[in-house]
């Protein structure tokens, strides 16, 4: 089983695919769950408090806006743990989104800087491209150590 970072970081489709092949998806949903279930300062809606953008200084300098640093504080630890990554470029907002273009650029950069297997894809616009998109992801996930040989039949397309 490999820890696979996904981008967009909250893509439910990528999350599902990674899980089906027996790997651990590293996604924003997990981080938000962690934030809202860990006792600490109550700071709704996602319990990011003013300390998080300061933690984000680990990834970006103080002149970088607080919203970028707060987002990086969420995504950065995921990238640090990643053993592989799938990056989908130019996706539709409904596919997954971090809201901030500068954060997106930095998150992708940080993933690319790691010496790990990375699959980069363009977001599909036709049915054919969609199928090809899933096949490529499936092949990539199968190539990672600890992949499930037989995922649930017919559910990977």
């Amino acid at each position: 089983m490999a820890k696979v970072f996904i981008y967009p970081t909250n893509s439910l489709i990528l999350y599902d695919l990674v899980e089906r092949f027996g790997h651990e998806p590293l996604a924003m949903m997990g981080r938000v769950h962690e934030k809202i279930t860990t006792p600490g300062i109550d700071s709704p809606p996602i319990n990011i408090n003013p300390e998080d953008p300061k933690y984000g200084l680990k990834y970006a300098a103080v002149e970088v806006p607080s919203g970028v640093r707060g987002r990086l504080a969420m995504a950065g630890p995921l990238i640090e743990k990643a053993e592989a990554a799938i990056i989908v470029n130019d996706s539709a907002i409904s596919f997954g989104c971090m809201g901030c273009a500068r954060t997106n650029e930095m998150v992708k950069y940080m993933a690319r800087q790691k010496d790990i297997p990375i699959l980069e894809l363009e977001y599909p616009n036709t049915e054919e491209e969609g199928k090809e998109f899933v096949y490529k992801i499936a092949d990539f996930l199968k190539s990672l150590p600890g992949a499930k040989e037989n995922n649930r039949e017919g559910e990977n397309e």
Partner: peptide, 14 residues
């Protein structure tokens, strides 16, 4: 707005 929840200031605004 853009970013208040990630800056940890959403609860301050509220």
């Amino acid at each position: 707005a853009c970013g208040p929840e990630y800056s940890g200031v959403q609860s301050e605004i509220e």
